[in-house]
Computed example of a mutant assay.
Amino acid sequence: MDVVSSEKRSAMMSNIKSRNTRPELEVRRVAHRLGLRFRLHRRDLPGTPDLIFPSRRTAIFVHGCYWHRHFGCKYAYNPKSNVEFWQNKFQSNVNRDLRVRRELENRGWKVITIWECETKDQKMIADILFQKVCDAAV
């Protein structure tokens, strides 16, 4: 049973943002510090990637571990109420992520996923960006 009313839960859920989240802003800060220049939220690309590097044809998605089911992550826990609804919701998110990745790769884009739990460590973000974005240009 939920500890808050359904109206309160609805209000809480509606406050969850999809753009300019703390993890996304952290990735942007590190990318900028590395001298990488990027564009944000290109709506003409499948899935509207969070960051893109047009000259490198690289798209980055900064995924929340909970919503996009980061396998093995402690933040990808399952709710205890309305279980069937949430399982369907999470599965549709994962299926959409796979479809979007495939569409971008078929268009010749390299796709990188950075998970929310990885954004807590700036060095880890820098390593990911350097290895997967900078090395792609070499």
Rank of each mutant, 00 (worst) to 15 (best):
Ile112Asp: 04
Cys65Arg: 04
Val133Asp: 00
Trp109Ser: 06
Arg9Ser: 04
Arg96Phe: 12
Glu103Tyr: 00
Pro79Gly: 11
Lys132His: 11
Val4Met: 04
Gln87Ala: 11
Ala59Pro: 03
Ser81Cys: 11
Val27Thr: 04
Gln122Ser: 15
Asn95Phe: 13
Val138Ile: 13
Leu34Met: 12
Glu105Trp: 11
Gln91Met: 12
His68Phe: 05
Cys73Trp: 04
Val100Thr: 05
Ser5Leu: 00
Thr119Gly: 02
Ser10Cys: 09
Gly72Pro: 03
Thr58Phe: 04
Gly35Thr: 02
Leu51Arg: 08
Lys89Cys: 04
Asn88Pro: 01
Leu25Pro: 03
Val138Ser: 15
Val62Arg: 02
Gly72Tyr: 07
Leu98Gln: 14
Arg42Pro: 10
Ser6Arg: 15
Arg33Trp: 02
Pro54Arg: 01
Gln91Tyr: 10
Arg29Val: 06
Glu103Met: 11
Asp121Phe: 03
Ala136Ile: 01
Ser92Gln: 15
Asn15Asp: 05
Val27Gly: 08
Gly47Trp: 06
Arg56Trp: 01
Trp67Cys: 02
Leu25Trp: 05
Val138Asp: 14
Tyr77Ser: 13
Ser18Leu: 06
Ser18Thr: 03
Asp2Gln: 13
Ser55Glu: 13
Asn106Gln: 14
Val83Gly: 08
His63Cys: 06
Phe85Met: 03
Gly47Met: 03
Phe71Met: 12
Phe130Met: 13
Val62Met: 09
Ile52Gln: 02
Phe53Asp: 02
Asp97Arg: 09
Lys123Ile: 12
Arg69Thr: 00
Lys89Ala: 04
Glu105Met: 04
Phe90Gln: 07
Cys117Asn: 07
Asn78Glu: 15
Gly47Glu: 05
Arg99Thr: 14
Arg37Met: 03
Ala137Gly: 10
Pro46Trp: 05
Asp97Leu: 01
Lys110Thr: 09
Glu103Pro: 06
Pro79Lys: 15
Ala31Pro: 00
Ser81Asp: 12
Met124Ser: 13
Thr113Asn: 12
Ile16Ser: 06
Val3Asn: 14
Arg9Gly: 10
Leu25Met: 10
